[in-house]
């Protein structure tokens, strides 16, 4: 890396491809302009970075592609405000900025041999996606693999191609669901909230569960995990907070004494039980 990340200045990336995930969510395939940076860019599933649109600003997004895909990386962006709509205005060939990777990552090698349960809600599948692909690349190193994915409605399902591929594998037990009322006549998955569906799937109590979604979903998934008998140390999530620096100095993303950018974004339920309820 040619420049210390702490100077808060992004590197130039080029938009290679834009994929419309849902009516309000797009995935962007980004590549660093500088070939040396592009070739040396490494990260771990769970890490994040800040995407800049010059003249608008920057914000935090998880890296949504696995590190085993080389030469580019992806971010998925839901249009919710000024910066995210500026990101949505980007077209292939356009310039943006990126700095990262920042933060810790999902536990990985220590889970070899374990059953894995991935529980995603809405765009919250984005940070799990690199971990799922990585896990499937090392499929023989893990026990059973479960994926529970839910969205508000059929129209809000992201990463359809990925879900189709995962669901088609006979070494993955995948269940998709939509919130009640979100189904249409073509829907063949479950109807119900993610935590309920997770309990119905009933993965073994010695599993490792990794979840991300809206904060309220995460809180209910924690309760379901408890009901299923999972150990708090084996329940893992990744949190989102407003961040400006990404490295622990801007003072914005703390929950209690822990900074989500520096000490997280990945936390176990066990770690979170020691934190105040302010997320």
């Amino acid at each position: 890396m040619s420049r210390p990340q702490e100077d808060l200045v992004p590197r130039i990336v080029r938009v290679e491809e834009v994929r419309q995930e849902t009516p309000d969510t797009r995935s962007l395939k980004l590549a660093f302009d500088d070939p040396a940076v592009r070739d040396n860019f490494t990260f771990k599933p769970g890490q994040f970075g800040l995407v800049s649109v010059f003249g608008v600003g920057e914000a935090v997004f998880c890296i949504a592609s696995p590190p085993i895909w080389k030469g580019f990386f992806e971010v998925s962006v839901k249009e919710v405000g000024k910066l995210t709509s500026a990101i949505h205005d980007l077209e292939p060939g356009d310039t943006a900025g990126f700095r990262g990777p920042y933060g810790n990552s999902f536990p990985y090698e220590e889970n070899f041999g374990r059953n894995m349960v991935f529980v995603g809600g809405g765009i919250g599948l984005a940070p799990l996606r690199p971990l799922i692909w990585q896990t499937l690349a090392d499929r023989d190193k893990f026990g059973d693999v479960y994926i529970v994915y839910g969205s508000r409605s059929v129209n809000d399902i992201v990463y359809r191609a990925d879900l189709e591929e995962w669901g088609g594998r006979d070494d993955v037990k995948m269940v998709t669901t939509v919130d009640p009322g979100g189904e249409d006549e073509t829907w063949k998955g479950e109807v119900g909230l993610v935590p309920q569906i997770l309990e119905k799937v009933n993965p073994p109590s010695d599993s490792v569960l990794v979840t991300c979604g809206p904060p309220i979903m995460i809180k209910f998934v924690f309760m379901s995990a408890k009901k299923l008998g999972l150990k708090p140390a084996d329940v893992v999530t990744t949190l989102e907070m407003k961040m400006k620096c990404g490295v622990g100095t801007c003072g914005r993303c703390n929950i209690g004494s822990r900074y989500v950018c520096r000490d997280g974004p990945v936390f176990t339920l066990e770690q979170m039980q020691a934190l105040p309820n302010e997320f």
């Binding site: 800049s52 608008v56 400006k244 620096c245 100095t249 801007c250 003072g251």
Partner: peptide, 9 residues
């Protein structure tokens, strides 16, 4: 010492 980062818009 908390700070914000913004662009001249």
């Amino acid at each position: 010492h908390c700070f914000d980062v913004i662009d001249e818009s």
